[in-house]
């Protein structure tokens, strides 16, 4: 335990992003401009329920933008990473890299 005023020895990792399902979805969205629900469903291999819950959580956290529309009378929900989402992902990568680098070989 660091003493008061002293920085912790281990880097702080964002626990919200560290959840594997959310992390996978954010990584997917980080390499494309935007993707819809069906695309993420297919690429992630998650169940509809899990995907829907995770995307809602990511949107509530401000990491993902949601755009709902109708195409040929079918609902389409498209998702895109927000600026905050990109920054959070970058910070997560830095802290996780630092944490893993601390591992002895």
């Amino acid at each position: 335990m660091p003493s008061p005023g002293q920085a912790p020895a281990l880097p702080d990792v964002d626990a919200f992003l560290h959840e594997l399902a959310r992390l996978r979805l954010l990584v997917l969205l980080s390499v494309v401009k935007r993707a819809d629900f069906v695309y993420l469903l297919r690429q992630s291999g998650f169940s509809r329920g899990n995907l829907s819950v995770q995307m809602t959580k990511l949107a509530e956290a401000g990491l993902v933008d949601i755009d709902k529309s109708f195409v040929d009378n079918r609902p389409r929900t498209a998702y895109a990473l927000t600026k905050a989402g990109r920054s959070a992902l970058r910070a997560y990568k830095v802290s996780m890299t630092a944490l893993l680098d601390a591992l002895p070989d």
């Binding site: 390499v31 494309v32 401009k33 935007r34 993707a35 819809d36 629900f37 069906v38 695309y39 993420l40 469903l41 297919r42 690429q43 195409v71 040929d72 079918r74 389409r76 498209a78």
Partner: peptide, 16 residues
């Protein structure tokens, strides 16, 4: 593409 592919594969926009 809209009738055969997108309902199955979804829609994605790649980077600029």
């Amino acid at each position: 593409r809209r009738s055969l592919v997108e309902p199955r594969a979804g829609l994605v926009e790649f980077s600029d």
